[in-house]
Amino acid sequence: MTGERPVVAGGLGGSPTRHVVVMGVSGAGKTTVARGIGDLTGLAFAEADEFHSEANVARMRSGVPLDDAARWPWLHALADWMAARGAEGVSTVLACSALKRSYRDVLRQGPPTVDFVHLDGPAEVIRERLSRRAGHYMPASLLESQLATLERGHPDEALLVLDVSLPPDELASAAVERLGLRTATSLGTG
């Protein structure tokens, strides 16, 4: 997937920064896997849900899916956050649905390069996970609208697709390995 890009020490010693977006529908495990990538690599983690406006959160909490007009300012804020961290020499990992190509294109407008990791798999697995999740404002009833909105990677997009059925620690490790990210322990072994 990204074999043409050299392995770099994300932002350390003048090296280019790396920016990873872990994407997929609600319940795919984006946050857990993105945190795992951050723990393994030292990349700064952010949860895209925390960038939503109060109006967006209220809308989703009431079971109404967001439309594109509600998403554009949110996506631009996420792209700006990655770009600002990159300008500081900080590499990032972001948990974000990024369901449509146009949404991913907005995120690509932030830092010079963005790698996408798509957690994909059977709807039944995701539906079952959502049924066990507590305390999240996104109701399981919106899964169908997210699945209908999801645009899987186009042939010209570099997306690393991982099977959502695997345990989160395996998914994080696979993403780190296949993206050629340096682990936090390897950074200190110069």
Rank of each mutant, 00 (worst) to 15 (best):
V33Q: 01
G29Q: 10
R5M: 15
S131H: 08
T92N: 10
D80N: 06
A87P: 01
Q146G: 12
P155L: 04
R59L: 13
L75M: 10
E88N: 05
G11K: 04
A84D: 15
T185R: 13
T185K: 13
L66A: 08
A87R: 06
P168E: 14
A175F: 10
A77W: 03
P112R: 02
R85F: 06
R182S: 02
E151N: 02
R5L: 15
T2P: 08
C96F: 01
R18C: 14
G42I: 11
G11T: 08
P168C: 14
M82H: 06
V64Y: 00
M1W: 05
L187E: 05
P112W: 01
H136N: 09
E128P: 04
P65M: 09
A55G: 12
S165K: 12
M82F: 04
I37D: 02
L171M: 02
L181G: 05
L66W: 01
V20T: 01
L142D: 14
H19G: 00
I126H: 07
A77I: 03
T32I: 11
L147N: 07
G188P: 08
V64N: 07
T92P: 05
V164E: 06
M60W: 07
R104G: 03
S97W: 08
A48R: 09
H76Y: 03
G24C: 05
C96P: 04
E88W: 03
S97T: 09
Y103Q: 03
K100V: 10
V22H: 06
V64Q: 12
M138P: 04
P65K: 04
D49N: 00
P122Y: 13
D156M: 03
A44F: 12
G24V: 07
D49E: 12
E170A: 12
G24K: 09
H118Q: 07
G190A: 15
S165T: 15
L187K: 05
H136P: 07
E177F: 12
L160T: 04
R152K: 11
S97H: 01
R178I: 08
W74H: 06
P73Q: 08
G121P: 03
A79Q: 06
M60C: 09
M60G: 03
L147W: 11
L43F: 01
M1I: 05
D80P: 07
